[in-house]
Design a protein around this nucleic acid. Structure first.
Lengths: 222, 222
DNA sequence: CCAGGTTTTCGCCTATCGGTCGAAAACGTG
DNA sequence: CACGTTTTCGACCGATAGGCGAAAACCTGG
């Protein structure tokens, strides 16, 4: 029962970790989590853990990542961990306990147990799903400019994406919608950027955008 | 620790189930599985379970599906199940115990517990991954004709796919390779079909074929 | 051995999609 | 009001997906 909570902050994809005070693996950084209660399923449990240990009630998305069960993954008796991927939109800055902080997933500090591998898996899952689902909504604030969205995707994917192409691809899939509003240009000037949102009701992951589609729906009646 | 083992048989996607002899849910159909041993991880465990209970050593692919943990999913004390998706290539016909058989995933008999939902999840996962990964290799025999492959994809996806398009898409991704051999036409005649295989070394799932790719690798030196 | 039926293969056409670029729009500053 | 800046938009092009039909290659029956 662990969660890799990811957020784009300061232009890089970061994960929330807390520093262990006690052995084993004292002073190493660890993913938040905890045991499963008697009257909840694993997803309810991880949400409870996150709400307890750190102030994260604003998770925009939570999904199962994988079960990690190597007998040697932690010292002592075997612990089977159900790992989750959690996402926080970029516009909020959760207040976290003093032992907890954010770290770029590509430059992790010394981590406890197999938590580094779990972070990598989370990162990869996110990158994949950004391509073939609408998961981007979970990284973005309610309203955003295209360049802000571009920065989010670039950080999460690990490479620059073209703003033009990003806007076209997402729009063509029917995910993006202009709000009508604009944002003031910075001190250096520039054209005011239009604001967009993910279309209402798309705030949950939809089916992947598949190739090898069903044969042409030949606009048949009934 | 359950597995939905899927195979295309007789033109439809089927799942391996065994009929419960005892309560609870006697005479209902159930997914194979069992408890986790002390010295194995969950994947080793599910492979052991499958090899014990039924003669399935020929799994072409096994992956974690999801954890099912609803406290009410089974009567009595709560049981957390790690569910797997297993695949068997279409050319083998495992010998199974007398209480075990195959059932079309779209026409399941009365199932035990939440196993119907698990089967649906397995079906959906397979259909998705066929689109954006090379997972097709796990359904197909070592060599096959394009029409045979088309039948496999159609059965797994639930709709007809075009043989022309299927061949082109898979070839363009570099997954398909002609063996040079052909197969004798049936009694009705017809042009002999060429045999193909999935390219060697691609017998494991590769990265998804993503959109929003990295910027053009501009053929730079070094 | 030829006509007709069958199945596969292949090339062509078209629409869409993804990637890139550059011009134009819309702002600020000096 | 010229200039720098940032965003937006249109245009182009190659790659991809989907569809169609002709041609290839085989069988059987007459």
């Amino acid at each position: 029962m662990l969660a890799a909570v990811l957020q784009v902050r300061a232009g890089s994809l970061q994960v929330m970790l807390w520093e262990r005070a006690r052995e084993p693996h004292a002073h190493r950084w660890s993913l938040p989590g905890g045991g499963l209660g008697g009257d909840e399923d694993v997803e309810a449990s991880i949400r409870r853990q996150l709400a307890e240990k750190v102030d994260v009630r604003q998770l925009s998305h939570v999904e199962q990542l994988a079960v990690f069960s190597n007998p040697a993954r932690v010292p002592g008796p075997r612990v089977v961990a159900t790992a989750f991927l959690g996402l926080v939109p970029s516009h909020i800055d959760p207040v976290v306990p003093s032992d907890t902080g954010w770290h770029p997933v590509d430059a992790l500090p010394a981590t406890a147990f197999d938590h580094e591998a779990i972070c990598r898996r989370a990162r990869n899952r996110l990158a994949s799903k950004l391509s073939y689902t609408n998961l981007g909504f979970a990284l973005a604030p309610p309203e955003f400019t295209i360049s802000a969205l571009r920065a989010l995707y670039s950080a999460a994917l690990g490479y620059k994406v073209s703003a033009t192409n990003l806007q076209r691809v997402l729009s063509r899939r029917g995910l993006l919608e202009p709000t009508g509003g604009t944002v003031q240009p910075g001190p250096a000037g520039g054209r005011p950027a239009a604001l967009f949102r993910f279309v209402s009701g798309e705030m949950r992951v939809t089916d992947p955008f598949a190739v090898l589609r069903p044969p042409a729906a030949r606009s048949l009646g009934s």
